[in-house]
């Protein structure tokens, strides 16, 4: 058996076993892991279009938001959990199909911008369609005990999106996507049906956030437009993909683990301590700097953009390590 499969299998195995362990902090950890899975799915699915095909889709979060709302609406219409979840993902894919043709007439920065504009547009549309979405009051659903099932379901979506992304990277479709990234005009000159390929890529990349959106609603029992359309949730997964290494299978995962780790382990903890020091005669509460975590996130993003455009995974020492572990997929 190929050693490349060993490490992922062990990780997934451990994760599968984790909820069986009896401990006080179990539910808290499961919740953090859910946040991590959510981000991995968003980052990885973004990267199908953003990394492999080179279209920086700043509106990727719309698929997630549609999945989240559609799931809630279907569930409240008594469609049942499974159908609602599939329906939510389906709604995302349908929406992707609707926007794909017009949006893919745009290239480069124009595409990114129009997609970014779509986030705001859909947010206002959601607020104004109060009858369906609850408008600015948000959308509520009823759900029972779900910590463990949601953990397994979201893990399953992670596994699915990673496998899907891996298969695309090795497929004929993936090759065509990469030629579009490198030089779309030349790709077309060599017979690549660029529009068809771009549409296929977008449809695939919209399915997983749609699914995850449903699970998110199920987890929170209440969503509003800030939660699913907010700029932070819209842009963080993209930053994660680039931070880890866009275009590489492992990249979005590394980025998500890093940023969720920083967020949960450092800032959440820091906000709870009150550690006062005297600085130049002033009493300074270190804990209050936890409020600057947006700035620190921003700073990390700036530094990545400036100094490692290829992300963590393409730093030579990291690359060597990943290659040794068999986790480095080639992006060429």
């Amino acid at each position: 058996m190929n050693k490349a499969f060993l490490f992922p299998l062990v990780v997934v195995g451990l994760l599968l076993a984790f909820p069986l362990i009896e401990m006080d902090a179990r539910d808290y950890i499961l919740l953090i892991l859910f946040t991590l899975f959510l981000n991995i799915v968003l980052a990885q699915s973004y990267d199908i279009v953003g990394g492999q095909m080179g279209y920086v889709n700043l509106g990727h979060i719309v698929f997630f938001a549609i999945g989240a709302y559609a799931f809630g609406i279907f569930l409240n219409a008594q469609l049942g959990f499974v159908l609602s979840l599939i329906g939510g993902a389906g709604a995302s894919v349908v929406f992707a199909a609707l926007i794909s043709y017009p949006f893919f007439r745009l290239r480069g920065a124009y595409f990114s911008l129009a997609a970014f504009g779509l986030v705001k547009l859909m947010e206002y549309v959601t607020i104004n369609m109060g009858a369906l979405t609850g408008g600015s009051n948000g959308l509520k659903i009823e759900a029972g005990d779900r910590v463990v099932p949601i953990f397994y379901l979201s893990l399953a979506v992670v596994v699915a999106v990673v496998i899907c992304s891996w298969l695309i990277g090795r497929s004929q479709l993936g090759l065509a996507m990469k030629t579009i990234r490198e030089d779309e005009e030349v790709a077309r000159d060599f017979g690549v049906p660029v529009l068809k390929i771009k549409v296929q890529a977008l449809l695939i990349s919209s399915f997983f956030p749609g699914l995850m959106g449903g699970l998110y609603t199920w987890q929170l029992q209440f969503i509003d437009t800030d939660q699913v359309f907010g700029l932070k949730i819209a842009l963080t997964p993209i930053a994660m993909a680039m931070l880890g290494g866009s275009g590489l299978l492992i990249g979005p995962i590394i980025g998500a683990v890093f940023l969720v780790g920083v967020e949960e382990l450092i800032w959440t903890q820091l906000a709870q301590v009150h550690w006062t020091v005297t600085l130049l005669g002033y009493e300074v509460d270190i804990g209050q700097f936890a409020h600057l975590r947006g700035a620190i996130l921003g700073l990390i993003i700036v530094l990545v953009g400036l100094f490692m455009p290829g992300g963590f995974a393409r730093l030579p020492p990291v690359e060597r390590m990943l290659t040794r572990a068999g986790l480095m997929t080639e992006d060429k």
Partner: peptide, 23 residues
């Protein structure tokens, strides 16, 4: 395509820093 992506990162990161510090 790398320039587009890195410019998005850098200016977005700067935006987050400025906003958060102002906040």
């Amino acid at each position: 395509h790398v320039r587009l992506a890195s410019a998005v990162l850098v200016t977005l990161g700067a935006a987050l820093v400025i906003e958060d510090v102002a906040d």
